[in-house]
Simulated assay, not measured.
Amino acid sequence: MNVLVINAGSSSLKYQLLDTKTREVYAKGNCERIGIDGSFVGHEERGGEKKKLEVALPDHKTAVKYVFQILDEAGFDTAKIEGIGHRVVQGGWYFPESKVVTDETLGWVREVAPLAPLHNYAEADVIQICREMFPSIGNVIVADTSFHYNIPEKAWRYALPRDVVDKLHIRKYGAHGTSHRYIWRTTSQFLNGDVHKLVSCHLGSGASLAAIQDGHDMDTTMGLTPLDGLIMGTRCGTIDPATVCYLVREGGYTIDEVDTMMNKQSGLLALSGVSSDSRDIEAGAEKGDKNCQMALDMFYYRTSQLIAEMAQSMHGFDTMAFSAGIGENSAEMRLGVAKELEWLGVKIDEKANEVRSDEPRVISTPDSKVKVLVVPTNEEYMIALDVEELLSK
């Protein structure tokens, strides 16, 4: 099936056109700075050179129109697109699995938007645009939170008053669920089913872990929002929740200022004082920057801590897989995390760890008690498979 996958943000729209049977990616790109001066589209076809096209994109509707236009101009018959898959950040309590877009399901995306206001509203708008512009093409909602929705209650429930929790739908929702689902699927296929308790490590500028036992999610590190859990590029991760109260009461910050601080000014950026990009931080540490080295040490420490926490939810683990921007590309980060876990019998083959590849690979030693893999993620393919399954019905 030819599927167009769309991932809309507040001022961006990423797209990928692919064939679910052959896995060929015909084209992909990103519309950036939508509604802002200097908007442009980065576009590439069949793995070729990426082109930067400066084009006015005053709104998401214009961006969607331009995506179809650029595909047509590149020689792709957009009439042969058989389905559109939409990544939705927050599915709330309505999306324990992916669903076909209807008036009702689209309304649900808007209803739960207060849990992810920067994402869901834009995503809902783009879904509506696609329905209006291309009424003959089916649309499917694939929520990042779906994979985590059925974790055990002891893992998702917060110890807050039940009336408050029930009224406001407060619970652990997690994120990156589509990626974690893909990592499990690929790891299981690669190891011919010889994996039962996997800690999936999606480590990028946004980062989370998931404990997956025989394909079922048992726990994850992100919470009500993507702020919880690991130290990330600009997010602080888990801290004492009273820190928010203290900053407001004693520091004089507003709630919005604290929200911005914790989501956009913290994490590796704040620790290093250099950058939110791990490559810049690793380079700084090599030059002797103590703040950069501390940022790395804290990232290794916190990640290994939470890997052990995920393992506890399954009463052990036999496999762990690194993925996403940092997990796939930083041998130094992988080694640093693995060394923190040596006490659990995790051993890395340092030569295998240095190999770069777009394919899944084992990087642990034969005598490691836990198999360690690098598994490049592919959320777009996972979304396309959901589109194929649901629209085929």
Rank of each mutant, 00 (worst) to 15 (best):
D103C: 08
D103Y: 11
D103K: 15
T105V: 14
L106Y: 14
L106P: 06
G107E: 14
G107F: 08
W108M: 14
W108H: 15
W108E: 12
V109R: 11
R110W: 05
E111G: 00
E111H: 14
V112G: 10
A113K: 04
P114N: 10
P114K: 08
L115C: 09
L115Y: 14
A116E: 07
A116M: 07
P117N: 07
P117H: 09
L118K: 06
L118H: 05
H119E: 09
H119S: 08
N120E: 03
N120V: 02
Y121M: 03
Y121A: 03
Y121N: 11
A122E: 06
E123C: 05
E123T: 02
A124T: 07
D125E: 15
D125Y: 03
D125F: 02
D125W: 00
V126I: 04
V126W: 09
V126R: 06
Q128D: 14
Q128N: 13
I129P: 02
I129E: 03
C130Y: 01
C130L: 10
R131S: 13
R131L: 12
M133A: 10
M133D: 10
F134K: 14
F134V: 01
P135I: 03
P135F: 08
S136A: 13
S136K: 15
I137P: 02
G138M: 01
G138W: 01
G138V: 00
G138Y: 00
N139A: 06
N139T: 03
N139P: 00
V140P: 06
I141R: 04
I141S: 05
V142A: 15
A143W: 07
A143G: 07
A143V: 07
A143I: 05
D144C: 04
D144I: 01
D144N: 05
S146Y: 10
F147I: 03
F147T: 03
H148G: 03
H148E: 04
Y149A: 12
Y149S: 12
Y149D: 11
N150E: 11
I151G: 00
I151P: 02
I151F: 01
E153T: 07
E153L: 12
K154E: 13
A155W: 02
A155K: 02
A155E: 13
A155C: 06
R157I: 12
R157G: 00
Y158K: 05
Y158F: 14
Y158H: 09
Y158M: 07
A159D: 12
P161C: 09
R162H: 11
R162Q: 14
D163K: 12
V164F: 14
V164C: 01
V164H: 02
V165G: 07
